[in-house]
């Protein structure tokens, strides 16, 4: 499964990139996160939500394909 991953705000600083395309063998949000935590150990300490195709999803959610966004706490307004 190929996913397009986007990092926002503080998380883009942690990963050093705004977006990347990666291939995953397992497909729940938490499986994807554990791979990302291996790649970016500092990500594990950060508070964030995950959105798939513009909707917030839970860690148990099974993802198909498309876009995954890692969103730190919102601070608009």
């Amino acid at each position: 499964m190929i996913l397009h991953i986007k990092y926002f705000g503080l998380l883009a600083e942690v990963t050093g990139c705004n977006e990347e395309t990666l291939e995953f063998s397992k497909n729940s949000v938490s499986d994807v996160l554990s791979i990302l935590f291996e790649k970016y150990p500092d990500l594990k300490e950060k508070d964030f939500q995950v959105a798939q195709n513009n909707e917030i999803v839970s860690k148990e959610m099974v993802i198909s394909e498309g876009e995954i966004a890692l969103l730190p706490p919102f601070s608009g307004g």
Binding site: F8, L71, P72, F74, G76, G77
Partner: peptide, 19 residues
């Protein structure tokens, strides 16, 4: 709304805003 504010200080260092 997924908006993220980066607070820039006078000495050009920064931190990420938390509402």
């Amino acid at each position: 709304i997924p908006v993220f504010g980066k607070e820039i200080f006078e000495d050009e260092s920064h931190q990420w805003k938390v509402n």
